[in-house]
Nucleic acid binder design. Sequence first.
DNA 1: TAGATTGTTAATCGATTAACAATC
DNA 2: TAGATTGTTAATCGATTAACAATC
Lengths: 208, 208
Amino acid sequence: MDKKGVSIAVIRRMPRYYRYLSELEKDGIGKISSKELADRMGLTASQVRQDFNCFGGFGQQGYGYNISLLKAKISEILGLDRGYTGVIVGVGHLGHALIMNFNFEERGVKIIAAFDIQKSLIGQSINGVEVFDTAGLESFVKGNNVDIVVLTLPRAAVRETAKNMAEAGVRGIWNFTSVDLGSIKDSTVVENVHFSDSIMTLSYLITK
Amino acid sequence: MDKKGVSIAVIRRMPRYYRYLSELEKDGIGKISSKELADRMGLTASQVRQDFNCFGGFGQQGYGYNISLLKAKISEILGLDRGYTGVIVGVGHLGHALIMNFNFEERGVKIIAAFDIQKSLIGQSINGVEVFDTAGLESFVKGNNVDIVVLTLPRAAVRETAKNMAEAGVRGIWNFTSVDLGSIKDSTVVENVHFSDSIMTLSYLITK
DNA sequence: TAGATTGTTAATCGATTAACAATC
DNA sequence: TAGATTGTTAATCGATTAACAATC
């Protein structure tokens, strides 16, 4: 289960495998071959086997892959079993939507607090998550060993917040803003969800 | 400006170039070299030049690239000037957040309606976008030549809605659900925003 | 003109695909 | 055992990087 030098392309397919395997498991299917899984996902059997073999041999010759075992391995690889904690910074419509709809726990992250500067939000509890004053963000993050910070706040405050969070020792920033967080501390990883880039790509793809 | 055979890797960098160029323009900078742009974006100068040359030569030897011209070209490449129309299907927290926060027009898409099955929402106007009964979605899409459908509705209804929309002739589906839309009509493009995949990738990256 | 920087070709690198021996 | 399918090595393909002649 070594992960040295596994390319990001492989990594980004892992959640997708996980998703398909979960579906299959839910359908009561117990095993699957690389060929069958590849066909369903629009990949090649070779690629599926290569991908899994980056982390070790999870299959069995002549049989295929045991779905629940494979799922468990991927879960472990992705760190979904690590019990990470997270906070949400910015409880506007998007932050609110994430707190309400997104099943963080299913992805191994427990949201332990939310932060906003708006007085009317502070003290409220949204889907069991309490909203605090952003003024206390830094000390909270330090005091509670927060692993992940979700940025759903307005552009203007993003860079500074990201910098502070990195210095406060968070391990990952889940960035929903369209701001690029280029030069952040090396020990802090940034994962972007750029809605803007996504719709522009779609625009390209529908343009002849 | 031919786009035959340009790889998706190149395409996905285009919105990012666009973003950086917009920043530079806002800062009053008029020209930039491939080297300088590459440094800012964490790419190589070669890659920047190769990328732009997929679509034609927008630079000038000994000078660099004129930022506003380059921006205009990218806008054209991405189809941001085509005046696409879109509708939002599912006005839950996320659909609501998009209507309220996301500047569709800046990305060349005009949202002309939203749809939901919940009676209390139907008839409301959110940020100038009227909410209709989903029962009328298909005929609306056909009647108004809708280009893009934004899917922000619950899992259960996703596959069928996507299928209907493809058959109704929409060109692109912007899919915010965690449902994979594998076997959709060839003429309809699907662009996914998989929050789930994104946070799992982040989880991996912070896991040692 | 000299200097700078592009456009473009060639070289390198990495990822995907194919093939097949190992083995369940 | 025979059949199936993996794990893994080798071949291919594509993308990135380097180099440099063209030219502003």
